[in-house]
Design a protein around this nucleic acid. Structure first.
Lengths: 196, 196
DNA sequence: TTCTTTTTGACACGCAATGCCATTTGTCGT
DNA sequence: ACGACAAATGGCATTGCGTGTCAAAAAGAA
């Protein structure tokens, strides 16, 4: 990695941290793009080159989680049936976030504090649900699922993730993310015509 | 209903139709708030008093669906177990939309055409999921569900709705919305400790 | 009618986001 | 080490959404 990409990584991280910090203190709308940029010593124009929208400063963490799921799923689908693979991928992602639980809680709190952030997050999840559904239903796969079933399985697993995170944030019980996920997973059973 | 509220309803409807029409023809971003307002003969400022954001011109239909679910659910929870009540409420909403399927398809197409619209929609659904979960878990109800279970059930049922609509929009099969929903519902079974 | 309340329009403003171009800053070959 | 090249950045201008404010207009009440 050259000096150039090295510097880019540093700037990006600084923007991420400064953004989370300022938004945490002042709130999302009260924090302008110029504020965050100034805190790092960079022009507002540059910040918007790193992050397409102001929301993405917070929501880029969601991207990371989505990448984990995508990669896990692709790997597991080679040897596991679809439902098992997807559930395991989701659990793996939550296990990673459990390790950075302090940061993750701060992020989730920021997301919940403002509609436009949560809108962006939900929209990204919706796209991932469709993407995963298309993978599960793709004709070139063994044990592919029929269209409606694929959408249902994909959507349901992400519903489990949502339920997990919601419970965790309210968090009276000190349970870990994967543990809550397992608990949520016992509530629903999948009936995919023996393809499971 | 006096002359005043009558006129408001008419203006609102006009904005809705003009908005859907223009966005359908020119696309969402190419259509400005001023355009839609001008098409109805109203100031842009007034449009934004009827709809908090430009997205809401399209997404207000989602609001209508959400209202149906809320009302059905409240009624059914008096006599039916939670999971049954929620599933029936969702199905009822889809049955209403099936009757206006031409309009509904236009709306869904518009939503899918643009990220910021779908972001707004998903964010609203997310709020409804939480709201329903809180209802199912509220302490003053008979057969209330524990927190994680409530979030899971609520999220899963809305995942079924999502799967239904996605399949319906892709729509090779000429099935009706409630029929697709029933099909999706056979894929998952709920295990709520006999409270079902 | 006249008085009161609600709705609307007009204007100004802040801010996010995009395009464009000049300038700076790494990178690479010679 | 120097200069040519590409990439990153900053500054500027622009568009459009969304908000606050206030005066004018429309609807309802007395």
């Amino acid at each position: 990695m050259g000096l150039r990409e090295d510097k880019k990584d540093r700037t990006r991280t600084q923007l991420l941290e400064a953004g989370l910090d300022l938004i945490h203190k002042r709130g999302f709308e009260a924090t302008t793009v110029a504020d965050i940029a100034a805190a790092v010593g960079v022009s507002p124009r540059t910040l918007l080159r790193y992050f397409p929208t102001k929301e993405d400063v917070i929501v880029s963490w969601v991207q990371d989680g989505m990448t984990i799921i995508r990669e896990e799923l692709e790997e597991r689908l080679k040897s596991e049936p679809p439902v098992v693979a997807l559930l395991a991928s989701a659990r793996a992602m939550l296990a990673v976030f459990e390790e950075k639980s302090r940061f993750f809680l701060a992020i989730e709190t920021a997301i919940r504090s403002n509609r436009s952030i949560s809108a962006r997050k939900e929209q990204m999840i919706a796209e991932l649900i469709d993407e995963v559904a298309r993978i599960l239903a793709s004709p070139d796969r063994p044990c592919r699922l029929p269209g409606v079933v694929a959408y249902t399985v994909s959507g349901t697993v992400f519903a489990l993730i949502r339920a997990t995170i919601s419970s965790w944030v309210e968090g009276r019980e000190g349970m870990s993310l994967p543990d809550i996920f397992d608990q949520a997973a016992t509530v629903v059973h999948f009936e995919t015509n023996g393809t499971e």
